[in-house]
Design a protein around this nucleic acid. Structure first.
Lengths: 285, 285
DNA sequence: GGGATATTTCGGTGCCCGCCGAACCGACCG
DNA sequence: CGGTCGGTTCGGCGGGCACCGAAATATCCC
């Protein structure tokens, strides 16, 4: 469950200067001149060290506006290059390089080198869910729309986009609502698939026996940023999205996080879930 | 869903110096001397401002070791005073005051004034779950056990303690395991109660009709820090813990987060779930 | 009212860290 | 092999912020 920096290199956070020792006596070493840590040499029947989560170091990785911007961008599930991220965040490439080092060392990101390119992506679904959880509790910061291009792009993203490994946007919310309406999805104690739901997934070409990862929550919901309502996520959501990609129901819009429904996809969701053309068609084509 | 700083005062983070404007042209205002923000006066059919989660500001609240320590302490669900927290975190009282202001302004904490005391607690289950989610992904920082008292206290906490609004520790994990074993709890698509489980809860004196909050996940699991295995959480976990307190199956250990099983509690969990005396009895009494 | 306690405010200090530009390295391409 | 491009390293700069102690304020108890 814990993030493991083991993948990339042995050293973890090399710049950090021994956080434990300097903090027992708070900040300036004025009070106790000689530490003398009470040399108690006892044979302990209990573990002689306890481990507590180092919340601050993890949160510190996300506490910078640039790093947060990077992580939010990576939430679309794709792999980005350092230059793309620099452009996205509006900082110099050299700055991004440093940030990526920290994020990789902290276990949030994984990197893959290809020639002169360095691709980074989130280190796994658990990481995405954690960032997701934090983001859904964060206050909203409104930014003005700068241009018409901008407005069009935002509208397309609000319609359908990828959210790490599953679908988000108005279409995803509509799918979730329709599944609930048809009793494929039950909400008695958190979201869960009904028997009908499991059968429906099979009909859609998704085998229901623990799709994908084993120890991760199989079905959960994710708060849609544009709709402010939940859409399907977790392994079930990921499997559904993957199936839609494989079957050609949706296609990615180039290299962006945007997603487009195909005619085949519209037909499937119209007949299978009764979605209206209004939600299925792209915003004012 | 979003944290609302509205409760405390109108001003939010007064020290922050206009984060948006200064960052469009990155840092030092060398490049573009005059901003001139393209006075596009268009009548937009789309919303002319979009809102994105301000991840960095929220994470920044948890990115300080002292504030993180405060939040982790508050995860036990009780209300603490500023002095208690200062002692716990090992910093001056005046320092804690400033931190509490930030946390309250950020919506993570709520305060209740009683005379000269200022009690603070987490602002709600959603906040607790978010911190929880972050903490379970954070790297572990091992701290040495300082004294025998320390060791005993830690051992007691590892046995049974409160985790915000539900039970944690070895006992909580054993309860969860036993419920799974007896098919009261199903894990097909995330944790969910079976029909037997709902009936069992009724037998235990908990009405299963949406106990407590409405829009919050009713059943979920929480990674136990000491056991590193999941225990029951969410509204169901909270209801079970509350019932146990009301019925006298468990009692809080003074004003700490420690929890003690009573003889009645041991009897109930032994007969109802078949828990062994080994897990039910306190560590080497 | 007077003293003790909890909390807050206010300067002041020092450090951490995000940022940039310039130089450098390595990969790819013609 | 020279040009281009993506990425990295390195000083250096500047701002934000966590910290403390002391003084001020509020509350409670006697």
């Amino acid at each position: 469950m814990t993030v493991t920096p083991a993948l990339t290199s042995a050293q973890t956070t090399p710049t950090q200067t021994t956080p434990t020792a300097a903090r027992t006596t708070p900040a300036s070493g004025r009070t106790t001149p000689a530490p003398v840590p009470t040399p108690r040499v006892q044979t302990t029947p209990t573990p002689d060290s306890i481990s507590a989560p180092d919340l601050a170091s993890l949160a510190g990785l996300l506490a910078d506006r640039t790093r947060a911007s990077i992580c939010l961008a990576l939430l679309d599930g794709r792999a980005w290059t350092a230059t793309e991220l620099a452009q996205h965040a509006g900082v110099a490439r050299s700055t991004v390089t440093g940030h990526l080092h920290q994020l990789v060392a902290g276990g949030l990101l994984e990197e893959a080198r290809q020639g002169r390119h360095r691709y980074v992506r989130l280190s796994g679904p658990a990481t995405a869910e954690m960032i997701e959880s934090l983001a859904s509790h964060a206050p909203l910061r409104t930014t003005p729309v700068r241009s018409l291009r901008d407005a069009n792009r935002r509208r397309a993203l609000a319609h359908a986009r990828s959210c790490y490994d599953h679908l988000a946007g108005a279409v995803a919310v509509a799918i979730t609502d329709a599944m609930t309406e048809r009793a494929l999805l039950a909400w008695d104690y958190g979201p869960s698939l009904s028997e009908d739901g499991k059968a429906w997934l099979r009909d859609m070409g998704i085998d229901d026996h623990r799709p994908l990862g084993s120890c991760r929550a199989h079905i959960r919901t994710c708060l849609d940023w544009t709709e402010r309502r939940p859409h399907l996520a977790g392994a079930v959501g990921a499997a559904l999205f993957q199936r839609a990609l494989d079957a050609g129901w949706v296609t990615r819009r180039g290299t962006t996080r945007g997603v487009e429904l195909t005619d085949a996809g519209r037909a499937v969701f119209r007949t299978q879930l009764g979605l209206s053309d209004e939600v299925l068609s792209p915003p004012q084509g």
